[in-house]
Simulated assay, not measured.
Amino acid sequence: MRNPAPSAISVDEMLQLDNQLCFAVYSASLAMTKRYKPLLDKLQLTYPQYLVMLVLWERDGLMVSELGERLFLDSGTLTPLLKRLEANGLVARIRDVGDERRVHVSLTAAGRKLKARAASVPACLLAASQCSVDELMALTQQVQILRDRVRAA
């Protein structure tokens, strides 16, 4: 782990809420989720369900463990999401015939069709952000690098 460079910021300043990166990320996440809600309500998806669908639209037929790795979720969190998506007719969960512990998740026809309806969601968030596509892509990459560094620490 790298040691932070010495700084002129005082302990009191370091402990101010508005100087906390974690709070900036957390509050930005809350704002983003709030912005997504009416868009996802039209699709009858929660935000975590939307994330599952995004992964499956990229690559259908993943195992539950692969979905969990991609979304940084454990199976205890992911299983209820998948059950709800299955109950809504968007995915099918199929046990592997060779190993019943492995469960594959596949989109149904309704799940594939939902992708076209969801296509407007990113543009709405782009507009709300008041950023260019390049700015958002750079910011996304910076946050991913931060996430990966913090996870590795």
Results as ranks from 00 to 15, higher is better:
M1R: 10
R2W: 15
R2M: 12
R2E: 14
P4L: 11
P6V: 11
I9V: 15
L15M: 10
Q16T: 08
D18H: 11
N19G: 10
Q20W: 13
Q20V: 12
Q20G: 10
L21F: 15
L21D: 07
C22T: 15
C22E: 14
C22Q: 11
A28F: 09
S29G: 07
S29M: 04
M32N: 00
M32L: 09
T33Y: 08
T33M: 09
Y36P: 00
P38Q: 04
L39D: 09
D41R: 11
K42A: 14
Q44V: 15
L45W: 13
T46K: 06
Y47F: 09
Y47W: 04
Y47T: 09
Y47P: 00
P48S: 06
Y50V: 01
Y50Q: 01
L51A: 02
M53N: 01
L54Y: 01
E58F: 12
E58R: 08
E58P: 00
R59L: 13
D60T: 12
D60Q: 08
D60P: 01
D60V: 10
G61C: 06
M63K: 14
M63E: 15
M63Y: 15
V64I: 15
S65L: 14
E66C: 01
L67W: 11
G68R: 05
L71Y: 12
F72D: 07
F72K: 00
D74Y: 06
S75N: 14
G76S: 08
T77A: 02
T77M: 01
T77D: 04
P80F: 13
L81S: 04
L82T: 03
R84A: 10
A87I: 03
A87P: 02
N88A: 05
N88M: 05
G89L: 00
V91Q: 00
R93Q: 14
I94G: 01
R95A: 14
R95Y: 08
R95P: 09
G98Y: 02
D99A: 14
R101W: 13
R102S: 14
R102M: 15
V103T: 07
H104Y: 12
S106N: 07
S106E: 12
T108H: 00
T108K: 00
A110K: 03
A110E: 12
R112W: 14
R112Y: 12
K113I: 07
A116D: 13
A118V: 14
A119W: 11
S120H: 13
V121R: 00
C124L: 05
L125W: 02
A127N: 01
Q130T: 10
Q130W: 06
S132R: 06
V133S: 02
L136C: 01
L136H: 00
A138Q: 03
Q141R: 04
I145E: 08
L146T: 13
R147E: 12
R149G: 08
R149K: 10
R151W: 10
A152Q: 11
A153C: 00
